[in-house]
């Protein structure tokens, strides 16, 4: 059995969106290196509940790095020290006895803190609702193999589609820009033939919504790419920008008219 160890946590506690928050110190004792980071927090929380104190609120669900629910800033880094790893997949073997760990929520204008380490990422859903889809009503598509797609494009689309919507990119960006997230969806759909009819409409509508949500602008710091647990690349941002320019140049308001008869 690996040796257990002790840590000190400095955790952002905030009752709700309206109250101010502050850091509170908690010991985390008898931690096994095989525990996941969230299991370590579970242990601390069980102790708090037994004492009648409110446990530290944090979002989580799958604990497998795929649902994108978890996420906190660990010692200044979104999702913590391990590259390409969500908070739930971080393990305590990345830490050592006596470490101090600071935990904060994602910080961005567009993501109000709901409680402690939990934020409201509804802005991401609204961006998708604005255009992050292909209009394919149920029952309408043709046979799946009727449209061959070069493997290379399918693979690139899949790379972009791997985004889990966790918002670490926003938390990492000094401007709190959402460009990496938005460009990943735009790229995925722009790389596929099915995505072509709405390609320019999509980029325009999604970017308009992104701006309305008060995300910052991208000034090429590249922090987003480093923080992203799914390896989403900044080349997606370049692809989105090209499409956006093209969309702006070719913009024509939709013609409205009824059919004859």
């Amino acid at each position: 059995m690996a040796k257990h160890f002790n840590l000190t946590l400095h955790v952002w506690r905030q009752k709700n969106a309206k109250c101010d928050g502050k850091f509170v110190e908690y010991p985390a004792e008898n931690i096994s290196p095989d525990m996941s980071f969230l299991e370590m927090l579970d242990v601390v929380n069980e102790g708090l509940i037994r004492k009648g104190e409110e446990p530290i609120a944090f979002d989580h669900d799958c604990r497998e790095g795929i649902c994108g629910t978890c996420g906190m800033v660990v010692n200044g880094r979104p999702h913590g020290p391990k590259e390409r790893t969500t908070t739930c997949q971080l393990h305590m073997r990345s830490f050592k006895d006596g470490d101090n760990i600071t935990l904060e929520p994602w910080r961005a204008e567009a993501f109000p803190v709901l409680k402690d380490l939990m934020v409201d990422r509804g802005a991401f859903d609204r961006i998708i609702a604005a255009g992050g889809f292909i209009s394919a009503p149920t029952g309408s598509p043709q046979d799946a193999n009727a449209l061959p797609i070069p493997k290379e494009n399918a693979d690139l689309a899949m790379d972009a589609a791997a985004c889990i919507g966790c918002a670490a990119c926003v938390a990492a960006c000094p401007n709190a820009s959402a460009m990496l997230f938005v460009s990943a969806k735009i790229s995925q759909l722009a790389l596929l033939p099915q995505g072509q009819p709405e390609r320019y409409l999509r980029v325009r509508d999604m970017i308009a919504q992104m701006d309305a949500e008060e995300f910052g602008t991208c000034t090429n710091h590249g922090e987003c790419e480093t923080a992203c647990p799914k390896g989403i690349k900044m080349e997606n941002i370049a692809r989105m920008n090209r499409d956006f320019i093209k969309a702006s140049l070719t913009y024509r308001p939709a013609t409205i008219g009824g059919g004859a008869g």
Partner: peptide, 10 residues
């Protein structure tokens, strides 16, 4: 068919 139509990258 439906999923491919939606852009699912199988």
């Amino acid at each position: 068919d439906q999923c491919v139509g939606q852009g699912v990258p199988f």
